[in-house]
């Protein structure tokens, strides 16, 4: 992170701050009943809400950047240019 340009560093710091704010909010841990899972049951609330978009992004970023995977197992390859 030390090598980040100040503007990007600012962006990352903001995201991390947002993450911790959200996490703090979210960590109001509650054991919820099945009938209270209405919000998390929405399509848009799924961890992988759009598998085809996920596929496309994996294709792009795994062929344009050195790292692979992280969110799931990524086998197989391509002669990506």
């Amino acid at each position: 992170m030390r090598s980040l340009h100040p503007k990007k560093y600012f962006f990352v710091i903001n995201c991390l701050c947002l993450f911790f704010i959200l996490l703090t909010t979210a960590c109001d841990y509650q054991r919820i009943k099945p009938w209270h899972r209405d919000i998390l049951s929405q399509d848009r609330a799924q961890l992988v809400s759009d598998t085809l978009e996920f596929d496309a992004d994996e294709h792009i970023y795994s062929s344009k950047e050195a790292p692979k995977g992280g969110q799931g197992i990524g086998g197989g390859g391509c002669g990506c240019n």
């Binding site: 598998t51 996920f54 596929d55 799931g72 990524g74 197989g76």
Partner: peptide
């Protein structure tokens, strides 16, 4: 429902 390049990712996700 994973694509080829990320076919295997589907399972975990």
């Amino acid at each position: 429902t994973r694509s080829i390049r990320a076919a295997l990712s589907a399972a975990t996700c």
